[in-house]
């Protein structure tokens, strides 16, 4: 490798993963995908204009393509791979499946994280709040309709689930 290289360790989904002799210019997206074998964050624009590479960095939703991997040391990185597997889908993942929110699926991992982020912060968002929260995640297949429906279903399920715990109606 010509140019500056760097070795460091990243905390990804609770695992300490070494990165050896990486080119300084590598984004976290590249390192996740090509060095650490975590392709769930997708590469569609590499300039923060599509949200396909959304991940959590210290619990904050960001585009991995805008994070310099060598600067992501001592931060907790959470990817879609850490959110559920085939046997343990998150409620958002399950709702995306059930409502037909997935077509080609390229935007899906980023959107799932964006929806988790929204609903963790705002449990009962208005329709406009949902649209604004996912406005940084481009989808070219669905026209967003089924994705918005998936969010509504998760909202309904979560509020139903919290009912028996005695929250006021």
């Amino acid at each position: 490798m010509t140019g500056a290289t760097e070795s460091y360790e990243l905390d990804v989904d609770g695992r300490a993963l070494p990165v050896a002799a990486a080119w300084l210019g590598e984004s976290l997206l590249y390192v996740l995908r090509e060095r650490l074998g975590l392709p769930g964050a997708k590469n569609a624009c590499e300039q923060g204009e599509c949200g396909s590479c959304s991940i959590f960095l210290d619990d904050v939703l960001v585009n991995a393509c805008c994070v310099l991997a060598a600067d992501a040391t001592d931060a907790r990185i959470r990817t879609v791979e850490g959110f559920g597997d085939a046997d343990h889908l998150s409620d958002v993942q399950a709702a995306f499946l059930g409502t037909g929110a997935v077509q080609c699926g390229f935007c899906t991992p980023g959107l799932i994280l964006a929806v988790h982020d929204l609903l963790d912060q705002v449990p009962d968002p208005t329709g406009l709040e949902v649209r604004e929260a996912i406005s940084g995640n481009l989808c070219r297949c669905t026209g967003y309709g089924r994705i918005l429906q998936a969010v509504e279903e998760v909202k309904a399920t979560r509020s139903g689930a919290s009912g028996p715990r005695g929250e006021s109606p």
């Binding site: 300084l24 210019g25 300039q47 805008c66």
Partner: peptide
């Protein structure tokens, strides 16, 4: 925040030697 600098690197408009 990286939203300018890392994008410039991704798009081959800047080659960082020292960050």
């Amino acid at each position: 925040g990286g939203t300018d600098l890392v994008v410039e690197v991704n798009l081959d408009r800047r080659r960082p030697e020292h960050v």
